[in-house]
Design a protein around this nucleic acid. Structure first.
Lengths: 148, 148
DNA sequence: TATTGTTATACTCTATAACTATA
DNA sequence: TATAGTTATAGAGTATAACAATA
């Protein structure tokens, strides 16, 4: 029973919501984007894993199937994403970015990343390294697909 | 123009949502709680800063006044929070936890913290230290009130 | 006039339950 | 029967715009 472990848990609960809020704001005021964080995460995942099924996406996002179905629905209506039917198993979807979806996710990513990076201005190289290492430690713990 | 800074920004965008999602799930399945993350943050802040005004709370949460007004409204309806009128400046509110609100925020905090801490099981003391340091570095950058 | 907070309105996010279609 | 996805329903989160009350 580590005291530090509880401290970390507490700090994560405390600070993570502030970071998310900041990312949400950056994402929303993008020049060519104005996209929500879940929408961004969806597009980004499909960009990296084209032809994913809905279930696969849901697992990555940590959300239920109906939630993701609705999320995808909105993106399809905005013509950022298309659903194909898999010819192998006709129950499954294959999700793909449209050209417009691809362009929006790129600009949202680069704008938000740039704005976030600006906020990290005051940090030294060593401090940045600490943060990067921490993120690498946290990734496999919280990304369900990293635990495969 | 640091490469590492962009890496960190990218990692934050990538990983933070996973952590939040995990916290949300923990918070929701608490035995005596079932509370949302924004609700938890609100109660927790008022617990630490009793008699805060709505604007002060909104600044901490990084949300607009109408959003926070509605959030508080829900908590008042659940009798977890009470609004007092300030006698000094009658435009301002003074927010306070009820006994029930206080008990719920305590159990939500300890349950979620315990569950989160369990997830950090695989990490060594040194790795935990890295994470804790990273959080301390990120706190003043993303908590608007820390920058005062 | 400026500040504090609320109301009206509109969307998005998320979940559970019930359903359809395919395997 | 089991799996992939959708629909129905409900409630919370969030924002902008318009407003009321107080300073």
């Amino acid at each position: 029973m580590s005291k530090l472990r509880n401290t970390c848990a507490h700090e994560l609960m405390d600070i993570t919501p502030h970071i998310i809020q900041s990312i949400r704001v950056e994402m929303r005021r993008g020049r060519g984007s104005d996209i929500s964080v879940p929408q961004f995460r969806t597009l980004r995942f499909i960009q990296r894993h084209p032809d994913s099924s809905l279930s696969y996406l849901a697992e990555h996002l940590g959300l239920t199937l109906p939630s993701v179905s609705k999320l995808v629905d909105g993106l399809v209506k905005q013509k950022l994403l298309v659903r194909h039917e898999s010819s192998v198993d006709r129950r499954q979807l294959m999700l793909l970015l449209t050209r417009s979806g691809s362009s929006i996710v790129d600009s949202a990513r680069s704008e938000a990343q740039q704005n976030l990076a600006n906020k990290l201005n005051s940090l030294s190289e060593n401090e940045l390294k600490t943060i990067s290492e921490a993120m690498q430690l946290l990734r496999p713990i919280f990304d369900s697909q990293d635990k495969h």
